[in-house]
Design a binder for these strands. Structure first.
Lengths: 236, 236
DNA sequence: TTAGTTTTGGTCAAGTTGACCATAACTACG
DNA sequence: CGTAGTTATGGTCAACTTGACCAAAACTAA
């Protein structure tokens, strides 16, 4: 479609194929400590290459859907979930990502809320893994997950992404646990509290979380949209 | 309409075509004020759709080059330049970006140094424009440039990207002018200086810039690599 | 009733930022 | 030659932010 130098016809004869994949993060309690940790669903490959290995959910882009729609679709297809946050991560196009053919993957990353994540489909070929306990994955998917985790850590520090891992109402301690899980370090409760109270997007509710073992914490609500992507700020 | 594992073959029969485009930024003195401003090269479309309008340089992805190589190639082909910074911007895949066919564009953005930029090829069909004085562009390229400018402003504030718009040696005032051009506001010279002096990647040289009208400023050098992309940190 | 724990509000020192002042060092021009 | 003009450079000060830490409030469990 652009300007042809010479061998355009050759190139177009064997175009790289295009796929959409999604890294889906959700919070689940750790089996050992019980504290929330980051998990993600993977699908088992049922054909070569990398048959039997776990891989990111993904598939081809159909002609009548946008990139983001395709990502949302394969999220729904593999887990049955709707994301509370969905953003493009990166387009991976190295020459030897797949041993059999050239594939360009446009990868999205998503966050789902724990109430949803609890209902997620799981089966012989779809299973959730702790993000920091992954074995060998198909293709370059391990590096992709690492990059997605890096992006998550970054967005967390600067942005307003933590709340999309929580339900509509949450305590400040729950937000802190998200930060501690993602950043992998302890945070001072009092200082963390002070920072959140200074952001206008966190709204106090009159409610308290009852049933805990100690002083009942106040419940808060997040008001504010993310949206810095081209896909999220103007109509595509 | 969504998942019907049936018509996979239909989809693959008409795959969206894949293109690589590049937003290339360089500093040039403003025609009016003489202060440095952000410019970028565009190419005139010589066929439909949008024939006659200006567009980002771009082209198809050939089977033996990575995405980044393709971006560097069409940068070289249209301007004759080598970038001092090159990073993936975003993959644009809206359904109606092109009126004739479905195109997914993986867009890169680049910075070139002014010594290089001065030598840039310019012709009837390749011309440089001020980034803040663009007319109507082909496709969704105007929105793409806006997003690239937003990313440039962001990277500037947090990262170490300004030096890639300058030569190897520069004065602190030149760095400040870059920030002022990109952020579009005046900065206090003394405060700005203090901040740069506190970053270890800026190295004092013994040299001074001679020939100015006033006190000769000291020359500095940038030591440090950028690199946070998947393409730039590990081998792809 | 008391011990244990979490929530919540507060202080304090160290560091950072923006506004501003003053001197140094050069050119241009009379 | 001397002085005005301009930029470079170094510094101060108040406002704000951050991390470390203290202490009271409020609940449960025993």
């Amino acid at each position: 479609m652009y300007y042809s130098s010479a061998n355009v016809s050759e190139r177009q004869a064997a175009p790289p194929s295009l796929a959409i994949s999604t890294v889906i993060f959700a919070l689940r309690p750790s089996a050992t400590s019980g504290r929330p940790t980051i998990w993600l669903p993977l699908v088992r490959r049922i054909r070569e290459p990398f048959k039997g290995l776990w891989a990111l959910p993904g598939g081809p882009l159909s002609h009548d859907e946008s990139l983001q729609d395709a990502a949302a679709r394969n999220l729904r297809e593999t887990t049955g979930l709707a994301p509370s946050y969905l953003e493009q991560l990166y387009a991976f196009g190295g020459l030897h990502r797949s041993p059999t053919q050239r594939v360009v993957s446009i990868v999205y990353w998503a966050l789902v809320q724990p109430t949803e994540a609890a209902l997620a489909d799981e089966s012989e070929n779809v299973r959730w893994f702790r993000a920091d306990r992954l074995g060998e994955l198909a293709f370059d998917h391990h590096a992709i997950v690492e990059y997605a985790l890096w992006r998550l850590r970054n967005k967390l520090a600067y942005g307003s992404v933590a709340y999309h891992l929580l339900g509509e109402y949450f305590t400040l301690a729950q937000v802190r646990e998200v930060y501690e899980a993602v950043l992998d370090r302890q945070l001072d409760p009092a200082n963390f509290r002070r920072q959140l109270k200074s952001t206008p997007e966190i709204e106090e509710t009159g409610e308290y979380l009852q049933g805990g073992k100690h002083r009942p914490p106040r419940l808060y609500r997040f008001t504010g949209r993310p949206g810095l992507d081209p896909d999220n700020r103007s109509t595509p």
